Amino acid sequence: MNTTFSLADLGWQPFFQQQLDLAEWDSAMPVRIAAQHKSRLIVYGESGQYALDTPPSLGTVTVGDWLLLNESMQINRLLERKSAFARRSPGSKVAEQLIAANVDTAFVVCALNEDFNLNRIERYLALVHDAGAEPVVVLTKMDLIDHADELREQVQRLDNQLCIEMVNGREATSAEVLLPWCEAGQTIVLLGSSGAGKSTLTNSLLGESIQLTSEIREEDGKGRHTTTSRALLPLKSGAMIIDTPGMRELQLAVGSDAIENTFADISDLALQCRFADCCHDQEPDCAVRAAMESGILDERRYDNYLKLKREQIRNEATLAEKHKAEKALGKFYKRTQSVSRENKGH
């Protein structure tokens, strides 16, 4: 695989260029993180591919981030992100986990077989809206069912402006419908659950089998999780693509705006309620309840909206408490060090 790129090939944009000061314009070398391996980073730059140690002072980074290197090939700093995908860490751990950064378009990949799930698609759309990227829903395995158009229409009803494409990931010509989003200089991330067909789709777009894939299990129609790490891969079109491991658990760490944007139809209906603080339960002249009773609004969609709102509020409060505790601990360390220095002086 070619590992020599121009900055434009790697997705360098004016947004990043404007972050450099005059000295950095002449001496700094921008590189982009292509892969992470514990304390080592694989980066791509104009002069090739490099493996770098991750300094503790760098902070949390992820695939897609841009770094500035000095003349000694050491990391100076991390550039501000144009977009960032993050979720709450799986399990009981209270932390955010970065998924990818500086992405232009997110392909939300969902299989059309037994794994088809509208609630999950809405969850991923909230993640994409929070990140600040363009969502495109990619429905895979269309060759396995005979009612693909019906399921596509169900997804379209989530948002009539949503871009949706159906593909058979094993046929390269089928994936060509995605090429308009894969132009030179663009970065795409593939998101979806295990077995949705992300790695197969990546291989179709790459034109070669780089990502491992697994066969579908006949008993439940599901694939097995194959991608175990994220990597930035170049497409022949000049775009960059990031395949991600299937997420069995996607706890949202998004802001309230992401939920409202994902469920814009419900937000618009709520503005028509008589009371601004309407709970859409027993209040008179409730536009949301009226829409459900008339069949305009699907009750499944409204229930999922409430579920994601509760989750967002709970996770936001939990993460805020964690950040507050970390800030207090940092102040404690600084005070302790200051007292220690004073005592040494005496």
Rank of each mutant, 00 (worst) to 15 (best):
M1S: 08
N2H: 06
T4C: 05
T4I: 07
L7M: 08
L10K: 10
G11W: 05
P14A: 02
D21H: 09
L22A: 10
P30C: 02
V31P: 04
R32P: 07
A34F: 03
A35E: 06
K38I: 03
K38L: 04
S47N: 09
A51K: 13
S57F: 03
T62V: 14
T62W: 01
V63G: 09
W66Q: 10
M73A: 11
N76M: 10
L78V: 13
L78K: 14
S83C: 04
F85C: 04
R88M: 00
P90H: 01
G91R: 01
A95H: 05
E96I: 01
E96A: 02
L98I: 06
A100Y: 01
N102T: 05
V103D: 03
T105W: 02
T105K: 02
V108L: 09
C110N: 11
C110V: 15
D115T: 15
D115K: 07
F116Y: 11
I121S: 08
A126G: 05
V128K: 12
H129N: 15
P135C: 11
M142D: 08
M142L: 11
H147R: 11
A148G: 09
L151N: 13
R152Q: 13
Q154P: 10
R157Y: 02
D159Q: 14
N160T: 15
N160H: 14
M166S: 13
V167K: 02
R170I: 00
E171K: 12
A172Y: 00
S174P: 00
A175N: 00
L178K: 10
L179S: 09
L191W: 01
L205S: 01
L206R: 00
S214Y: 05
S214C: 11
E215S: 13
I216C: 05
E218M: 11
D220V: 13
T226H: 03
T227D: 07
R230C: 13
I242H: 03
D243C: 09
D243I: 05
P245R: 06
G246M: 06
E249K: 00
L252F: 00
V254Q: 00
A258G: 13
I259C: 02
N261E: 09
T262H: 07
I266L: 08
D268E: 15
L269R: 15
Q272T: 14
D277A: 13
D285K: 15
C286K: 15
A287D: 04
V288P: 11
A291Y: 12
M292G: 14
E293V: 09
L297M: 14
Y302K: 09
D303R: 15
Q312W: 01
R314D: 09
K322N: 12
E326H: 11
K331S: 08
Y333M: 11
V339P: 01
N343I: 15
